[in-house]
Design a protein around this nucleic acid. Structure first.
Lengths: 337, 337
DNA sequence: CGTTCTAATTAGATCGATCTAAAATACATA
DNA sequence: TATGTATTTTAGATCGATCTAATTAGAACG
């Protein structure tokens, strides 16, 4: 059953040339005469020859493979992010090795190790919650081209692509202020990651700058149902907020659902703003969620570009690529009455 | 900048043993004395040695890597599917190489080739629309362990994991019949893939069996917005359907949105059933979509298991794993008045 | 036709691990 | 101590492509 592999040697023999020449043909070198090239290419097609990249990379050093680690794939934010990466790398002939850390730093360390064993030329890391700076430092010290995406651990250790979280929050706050809201809450997800701190920090700062009131921060777990219990928690706050900014669209949509279950109307009884602009927002029944678009696909593409740059030039200066978010006003925010 | 790689030779030298012994330690062989093992392991840790899998696989043949090709990642159905695969393979120490065919058979061929070059031990293929049986035949002939998932091309060529599309449709039809519906439409997506045929075939068959009327099949493209124009198309049919079964949840949610835009109420003016049970269904505003749950994660896991089995035993009998779908009745189906 | 220059080809070493088969060491027993 | 057996260790060949440096074929010219 196990067919013996067709090697370059077989091809060379069948085409009546040397291994070296056959190798040149495969790599598309222009050192080889057209006639010879044709002959060899014909044989390759006939034998359905597939090069053994193990051998190639052993000698040639490059695997044309890049490792990508993300916390999970359930949130479509991550899928879009990966899509962006994949599209960009594919164009350059790179293959993505995908792994999911499940937001567990230990698991993540194992994956990093495995990706290195698999000889990834570089790694795009969406760091798991609680990742130690040490992890990053070691990678960089070992000379592994690395880009951190979205979240980052330890400043100025690696290239970075992400979003301007501060601006995202400021956009939401200002939008709500323009609508007359003064008491605003923030629905965050439990845990300690740089994004949470950044958004929360920006939230409080901007409230202060605008002279508005922080009506309370509530923490909920990130569940597939978006933790609709946030609705009741918000309505129990004193003084009661007239608007809530949510860490992401999943939480925001969960909140919408919770409001409906309480017989309340988003945009009237409570204005709701999300983050991410996931594609499902436009689907289904109104009202549609007002949210800040974060462009995960672009961020993915940017990470890929940064990584390719670093692979080419390991000594290049550290660079950050920040994608500017954009507010998408839809139906769940309205004037305060 | 480019640090020279630490090789097994370096480890061996530093530990005062031979390359062979060091190799044994790495592979966890019990042929090596405890004292020696400790010594070597210490050195490995000190030098932060990472084996070069290129060399290993060149000699040892196994890459512990599996290729996965899916049409795209935007539909979260695919992400969940990939999650299932990744989780299962990860447990066995396998690494996933992910690639997206964008539903283009040509691109897909290129990717298949690339995955083989990268020495994937096997491939899980969610075939692109319009994939030729020839593609599959060649792979199988070349001895590449292959599992087709969800869709399949050419029967009995490879292992297969998927869903019982026929049952899925029958469940929806019977549910609608129980609610008193007699004129039912099907919203399909344009294109020719086995799933479409299967679902459509089962639809017509079951209508006949139940003595119901096919009120018309409409084809729409799969867009991110779920092609809400389907609503108007359905309402223009003569005689007008009282219920519609949609190929997937994206189309169904698009239809819901289209109905609202026309001022119609799903579940009252038109009953709507989806397929897949994507996780966003529970989010956001009511009404929630009635749909058939398809369990992509389980199907992914099943594909992974089938593939591992075939890798272990290439001569094993062909096997199909069919996951049974389940109807989730929510708000968008109601009695006909 | 011999010489020179360029274009095309090739032999052979090499990458870093694994495998086989043999050697060295330890251990038990007579 | 000698001998046989079990346990560890190792030298050296090997996987399949690529690279370097050298060789050969081909073209151009006086």
């Amino acid at each position: 059953m196990a067919v013996k592999r067709t090697t370059l040697m077989d091809v060379a023999r069948a085409a009546g040339v040397s291994r070296a020449t056959a190798s040149l043909v495969i790599r598309g070198s222009d050192l080889v005469a057209d006639k010879t090239r044709e002959k060899v290419e014909k044989v390759i097609a006939e034998l359905d020859y597939v090069p053994n990249s193990g051998a190639a990379r052993l000698r040639g050093q490059k695997s044309r493979t890049v490792g990508v680690i993300i916390p999970n794939l359930v949130n479509s934010f991550f899928s879009e992010f990966v899509e962006g990466i994949e599209a960009e790398l594919d164009e350059q002939g790179y293959q993505v090795m995908l792994a999911s850390s499940r937001d567990d730093p230990e698991r993540q360390s194992g994956l990093l190790r495995r990706l290195r064993e698999h000889d990834a030329e570089g790694i795009i890391l969406f760091p798991a919650e609680g990742t130690e700076p040490d992890t990053i430092e070691k990678l960089v010290a070992a000379g592994v081209p690395l880009v951190q995406a979205m979240r980052h651990v330890g400043r100025d250790l690696s290239d970075f692509a992400g979003s301007d979280h501060g601006l995202a929050v400021r956009l939401s706050v200002r939008h709500l202020r323009d609508l007359g809201h003064r008491r605003i809450s923030f629905v965050s997800l439990a845990g300690k990651v740089s994004t949470r701190e950044e958004r929360l920090g920006a939230f409080e700062e901007e409230l202060r700058a605008q002279g508005l009131v922080n009506a309370g921060v509530i923490d909920v777990p990130l569940e597939w149902d978006g933790s609709p219990q946030s609705a009741a928690m918000l309505m129990a706050l004193e003084p009661r907020p007239t608007a809530a900014i949510c860490f992401n669209d999943i939480l925001a949509s969960g909140l919408l659902r919770g409001l409906f279950d309480l017989g309340l109307m988003p945009g009237r009884d409570l204005s709701v703003v999300g983050h991410d602009n996931l594609s499902f927002i436009d689907l289904g029944a109104p009202p549609r969620l007002t949210t800040v678009q974060v462009f995960p696909r672009q961020i993915g593409a940017a990470s890929a570009k940064l990584l390719l740059r670093r692979i080419k030039d390991p000594g290049a200066e550290l660079k950050s690529e920040i994608v500017t978010p954009r507010l998408r006003v839809r139906d769940t925010t309205g004037p305060v009455d």
